[in-house]
Amino acid sequence: MPGYTSAVLIELLDGCLQKNRRSQELLYKQFYGYAMSICLRYTRSREEAKEILNDGFYKVFTKLDTFDSSRSFKTWLSRIMINTALDHYRQEVRRDVFDDVEVADNVTVDETVISKLAHEELMELIQRLTPSYRIVFSLSVIDGYTHEEIADQLNISVGASKSNLSRAREKLREMLSKINIGDYDRVTR
């Protein structure tokens, strides 16, 4: 998002520090899409993502005085969203079973179809992964965490992190294979 370190943003953050609702609303609107896209890939549904989004923004508005304005606000925001999602994941991890996705038949699909899939559909594929695969895949592939960092965050071994990433990729390939032309037409029309 261009201009997030601009004077406008600093002004907005000042307003938020003073608990000005209008400033908070503007900041929320400005970073809604960015924050929501993070939340979506760490959760299984949009409703769940909304909860994490609001939990994250709640932390932003109530802990804004801890933000170092010399650093990137966007990076700070993404850290908060990811951490909030991880907290949520830790709370629910005991109830989730990892291997719960049906394996698709080997269906060959034209790669051009995949490239044309809507971003929402691809995000939904990530959401279909089990929580442990989804979290590791999102942290590693999209948010650039190392396996050591992931292992530390999730309290698992580095090997488990690598294994989960590998299996997540495998699952995603399987799910992509399941999408046929008909599904594609339905999604994109």
Binding site: G33, Y34, S37, L122, M123
Partner: peptide
Amino acid sequence: LFRKSSEELDPQF
């Protein structure tokens, strides 16, 4: 593919 999709995803407010 997924990184690009994630970056370009812009959910509506």
